[in-house]
Nucleic acid binder design. Structure first.
Length: 659
RNA sequence: GCGCCCGUAGCUCAGCUGGAUAGAGCGACUGACUACGAAUCAGUAGGCCGGAGGUUCGAAUCCUUCCGGGCGCACCA
């Protein structure tokens, strides 16, 4: 409702300015005033025009108001303050518009590819990965809600140094053979133990092992590490087979962990196929032909194929020592090079495709994985018109390099629709680290937060946190839902726990570091997911007890002609404010997508819940004696419930039946 | 040294891409359950928006500079 009215008013203002002053303004600013006493929409345009028109802002505002005339949905316009033009809505029409829904105002229809999660498959997922996956998954839901077709990808670096390290752990530290590794995986499976947890410890041990020995020993160990990495990259040997067994088992665990949070993927492209299907060879040719890459013959990068960094200002023919190496002097390609090839594929510019096979079954769809020789029948991935990469802010330089390469190759439209959806890390507060039993140095103790590290085995594992949250919500549910069945109580506890976790990861804007603390994450009061869930549950209780349904009450509302008396007057301002908030959904969605900021919707749903709770205490619905007013109050609750459920759904949070 | 991010109430964070009196949650203190269940609500206290300049009718928001913190700048991935 709000988004349409805002667009209508802006458009109308634009034509008025054009005809009255012959001024062209692309986007006339129309904002929501800080207080309802200033109306529902306002524009400071007269203040802006004062200088060019050489008139007092108030005079201009008055002239514009006179020229505006009437507009459907609006009750009137007035001049206020130093020269603001405030718009007042036709409240009855506003309520009707909100009841009719708010979902058709965005119609984006792009083919979008979102990559998120992308955890190295060599250890358990931790809270940092949770932030990534929850941000990514939520953004996918928002893009879909706006009408886009979205493919969700989780990139799997199954041939990297991190996998190599855990393989070194199995083969060397534990001295296991391929058969023994296979047997271990079987044993863990039957005993119900988590493989990724096993690897978490082994990976940390291996990382330490590289540094524990004498200088000579360490050099040998590192050599072994790179030999292992090389064998994995090559493929077709026992080491590679061990790597594949482990990384695949860990990957399955990651998918299970994420599924607990309702996070699903469509396709898992793996680095092994990018290597074996020679994506790089094709990209290399294109990069050479377009002159993005050039062969360096002098300086420290002599013998390498390099590219200029974004923003580099080097005169033609001069040595650029700062250039980014893409192909090393030994002929091997760097990570950025492989990433360029992969991103050409994402936009359908590579001219080569993965093989596809089914990998993981979700209740309502299949998740595919890359392979060399895949199934004949498979969906089409890649070839997107816009992409979002959910990757933490530390990788902004390499991401910028990839974008630069695309632009340099002449793919400017693609480069413009390449978004590095960056976010800050999740760290632990020193107190939290101490509570978890880690030894913390004095230096770290004085810091505001300590970075999580998989290599050091330092952090909170995702499944541990989820388990802990469910245990905590279980306790609360036991206190309140004594008459419900065990399975029902468990379900409620899970829904509330997941709601708390997802909301916690979404309430912060992306570039704010989250200093993780169990006290905050396990909180179910105040600005939390459960707060919003509780408001929705309250509304369900009202309808249950009142023996009616939202649908019936909204139908009944349509038959009442006169709503103005319920919407005007001092004592009804808060009800009107609640309706207005409900009508803001697509406006906020539009802003959230534009800014790549899911936190806007988290804030919105909280404010909606807050305004409803306020309304709930002030107006007792079921004892209302005037039947028309009772219908209006019930309709208000119905719309609040609909909005809460829909927006919570976008955040990946379910609304429990009771709590 | 270069680049990016951050500094707003005791704590944790919002502040809609320059607008009207700077907001919320937590914590503290007061109060509200024989009502649609209090995982709730009402109220009080608490801020020179890191400092200093500038642009503007108008700055927490834009520019410059300084201070303080974080993260990047490999022929690692």
């Amino acid at each position: 409702m709000y988004l349409e009215l805002q667009k209508q008013l802006a458009g109308h203002l634009r034509s008025v300015l054009q005809s009255k002053y012959s001024i062209e303004i692309e986007n006339v600013p129309v904002e929501i005033p800080p207080d309802l006493k200033f109306g529902e929409l306002a524009t400071p345009i007269a203040l802006q025009l004062a200088r060019t028109l050489r008139k007092a802002p108030k005079v201009i505002a008055q002239e514009i108001v006179e020229a505006l005339g009437t507009l459907p949905g609006f009750a009137g316009f007035e001049v206020a303050g130093a020269g603001y033009i405030n718009a007042r809505l036709d409240r009855t029409a506003g309520v009707r518009a909100v009841v009719d829904g708010d979902g058709h105002s965005l119609d984006m229809q792009d083919h979008v590819l979102v990559e998120h999660t992308s955890i190295n498959p060599n250890k358990a997922a931790h809270i940092g990965h949770l932030r990534n996956a929850i941000l990514g998954d939520t953004f996918v839901r928002l893009l879909r809600a706006a009408g886009n077709q979205v493919d969700v990808q989780n990139y799997i670096d199954n041939t990297g140094v991190q996998v190599a390290d855990v393989v070194v752990g199995f083969l060397h530290l534990e001295g296991k053979s391929l058969a023994e590794v296979r047997r271990l995986l079987e044993e863990l499976k039957t005993s119900g133990e988590r493989v990724d947890y096993y690897c978490w410890d082994l990976y940390a041990r291996t990382s330490q092992w590289y540094e524990q020995g004498s200088a000579e020993e360490n050099a040998e160990r590192k050599k072994f590490r790179y030999a292992t990495l090389h064998e994995i990259e090559q493929g077709g040997n026992e080491t590679a087979e061990v790597a594949d067994l482990i990384s695949t088992a860990v990957l399955r665990r990651h998918l299970e962990t994420m599924l607990r949070l309702d996070i699903e993927y469509d396709f898992l492209p793996r680095e092994s196929e990018i290597l074996h299907l020679k994506f790089w060879d094709v990209a290399f040719e294109q990069l050479k032909q377009t002159g993005v890459l050039y062969f360096e013959t002098e300086g420290k990068n002599k013998g390498c194929w390099v590219m200029r960094r974004p923003g580099a200002e080097i005169a033609e023919g001069e040595l650029d020592e700062d250039a980014k190496v893409i192909v090393r002097s030994n002929g091997t390609v760097t990570y950025v090079g492989k990433d360029i090839a992969y991103h050409l594929w994402k936009f359908g510019l590579l001219g080569r495709d993965f093989g596809y096979k089914k990998f993981f079954k979700y209740p309502d769809h299949e998740c595919w994985i890359s392979t060399e020789h895949g199934e004949a029948e498979h969906p089409h991935f890649g070839g997107a018109t816009a992409i979002y990469n959910v990757i933490d802010s530390r990788q902004s330089d390499p991401q910028a390099n990839v974008i630069q390469a695309l632009r340099g190759m002449g793919h400017t439209a693609q480069a413009d629709h390449y978004t590095h959806f960056s976010y800050e890390m999740v760290a632990l507060t020193p107190r939290c680290a101490v509570d978890l039993g880690y030894t913390v140095s004095d230096e770290d103790l004085s810091r505001p937060y300590i970075e999580v590290s998989g290599r050091k085995g330092f952090g909170v594992k995702a499944d541990d946190l989820i388990d802990k949250l469910i245990a905590a919500t279980r306790e609360e549910v036991e206190k309140r839902q004594t008459s419900r069945e065990e399975a029902e109580r468990q379900k409620i506890a899970e829904q509330v726990a997941i709601g708390a976790l997802r909301y916690f990861m979404l309430k912060f804007t992306r570039n704010s570091v989250i200093a993780f603390d169990f006290k905050d994450a396990l909180s179910f009061e105040g600005e939390t997911g459960p707060y919003a869930q509780y408001a929705a549950v309250r509304i369900r209780n009202i309808f249950r007890k009142g023996g009616t349904t939202p649908k019936a009450e909204l139908a009944r509302l349509a038959e009442i002609d006169e709503l103005e008396s319920y919407l005007s007057g001092e004592e009804n301002e808060d009800i009107w404010a609640l309706w207005l908030r409900a009508g803001r959904r697509s406006l906020v969605l539009d802003q959230a997508i534009g800014a790549s900021e899911p936190a806007y919707l988290a804030k919105h749903v909280f404010q909606l819940a807050q305004e409803f709770n306020n309304f709930y205490h002030k107006h007792h619905i079921l004892t209302e004696e005037d039947p028309a007013k009772k219908t209006f109050l019930l309709a208000t609750a119905a719309v609040a419930l609909r909005e809460l459920m829909m927006v919570l759904g976008w955040l990946g949070i379910e609304t429990p039946e009771a709590m």
